[in-house]
Design a protein around this nucleic acid. Sequence first.
DNA 1: GCGACAG
DNA 2: ATCTTGTCGC
Length: 233
Amino acid sequence: MTDAPYALPPDWPTTEAEATAVQEELRGRVVLDEPGPPPGAPLVAVGVDVAYDDERDVVAAAAVALDATTLDVVAEATAVGRVSFPYVPGLLAFREVPTVLDALARLDVTPGLVVCDGYGLAHPRRFGLASHLGVLTGLPVVGVAKNPFTFRFEPPGPLRGDASPLLDGEEEVGRALRTQPGVKPVFVSVGHRVGLDRACEHVLRLAPRFRLPETTRAADALCRRALAGHGRP
DNA sequence: GCGACAG
DNA sequence: ATCTTGTCGC
């Protein structure tokens, strides 16, 4: 018997109370003292995202692997599942992780870095979607969100690459990063096995032209296609 | 106690 | 997340 790649734990929760307990358990296994993949070296960066059909209770996930230097797509995978958890702020991971793991398992390359929508450390309990994905896969994971959630920040400078701390009180839980000049920043936080400095360097490199990193854009487009192409060939 | 709150 | 056309601009 070999272990399936990226399998869910046997005690994966279905209720909010169970989820809180599982989250605490996983949080004890996060690794925050690794610098992460060096920005200069060759890297496969994988974007993951999900789309929902609330009518049919269906969720589609996509994983798209890019060469982080050329931004060429080197692999793609999708997975479709049932929505098995409600949207609860702070517990987003339990809604998205199962189907995302399926998509990652179907990818025929090993990710050097995973980029997901949402947060890692920038989370009420310091353990968001990116953190869950990191601990469950063992991969370096960074979270890139479009909104500041509940956190405060001073607007970063206007230039591409300018950044400012994302703050929970006095604590820097992430960074507001300007990926395009004069455009609203994205909100970067670390998930697992990556430091914030390198996380921002990678995100910046992955977003040479648009606000969101190409990993996110590619995964977003693919999961929407997967959802649409479901139910009628 | 209630609302706000990533996707 | 999702509901949603054309339109303005580089």
